[in-house]
């Protein structure tokens, strides 16, 4: 469904963030992208929806080549890619409901969006999503009144209301405590399963990735150095991605009882 071909990004400073990355993601697959800071994880995700303009190579979403689209065509395709951010990136001074509905901006005309006159079907869908993540009561609160975990849930609703085929998730748990991190990861994977969404999840917490995803891709200096099942992440593989360290602790199977209690 999503295919990256020789995707390369060189920043103006000369840093090569991505070096001819090839990647294919089938429908419904949740993929974790791991790698050290600066490996190009964030750049890769942003090159897919062209928030960062790739230098060369192509991105194909269901056969349409995103890298060739003009501004209007790109906006249409962006609607099919929901994005979830590290620090939530909610518009802090807008209400929860406005933040969720802003996911529909690509479908609604300018004047309707200016006066907040969204179609009833969008409003209903926003309510359903907020109910699904347990925040229906917060609908009219301002986003900056929410806790970190709550904000990330709103961020998830904003991405899902776009009715996307693909979720781009950038470090969804980096600003959250361990318990909330698991809850958010579980929510994302559950929702992807419910809606048969593909997802690329940038994550630096290897244990958390292993717990929830079916496929892991390791990125190092802009090159894919690992692509396989979470169980194949051996200490040797992690050393190749992150460098020398004692990995025995990390790859131990997670204690599910503790997880259930938390």
């Amino acid at each position: 469904m999503l295919r990256l071909e020789k995707l390369t990004k060189v920043y103006k400073t000369g840093d090569k963030a991505l070096n001819a990355v090839d990647l294919e993601v089938p429908q419904g697959q949740v993929l974790a992208l791991i790698g050290p800071s600066g490996a190009g994880k964030s750049t890769l995700i942003r090159c897919i929806n062209r928030l960062v303009e790739p230098t060369s190579g192509s991105v194909l979403l269901d056969g349409s080549e995103l890298t060739r689209l003009g501004a209007g065509g790109l906006r249409k395709e962006r609607r099919r890619m929901g994005m979830i951010f590290q620090e939530y990136a909610l518009v802090e001074r807008l209400t929860v409901m406005e933040n969720v509905l802003s996911g529909r901006l690509g479908y609604v005309g300018f004047w309707r969006s200016l006066f907040r006159k969204f179609p009833q079907s969008d409003v209903d869908e926003a309510f359903r999503l907020l109910d699904r993540v347990g925040l229906l009561k917060m609908a009219d609160k301002r986003a900056d009144e929410l806790s970190g975990g709550q904000r990330q849930r709103v961020g998830i609703c904003r991405a899902l209301i776009q009715n996307p085929a693909l979720l781009l998730v950038d470090e969804p748990t980096a600003s959250l405590d361990p318990k909330t991190s698991r809850q958010i990861m579980r929510l994302i994977t559950e929702l992807c399963a419910e809606r048969k969404l593909a997802a690329i999840v940038n994550i630096h917490d290897v244990a958390l990735a292993q717990m929830f995803v079916s496929r892991v891709v390791g990125l190092e200096k802009g090159v894919v150095v690992f692509d396989g099942a979470p169980d194949d992440l051996t200490p040797e593989v992690l050393t190749r991605i992150y460098g020398e360290e004692d990995w025995a602790e990390t790859v131990q199977p997670v204690d599910e009882d503790e997880e259930a209690a938390g």
Partner: peptide
Amino acid sequence: EKQVEAVRATGAR
């Protein structure tokens, strides 16, 4: 800018 980026990512004009 992150908040702006997030709105842009939805496909908004």
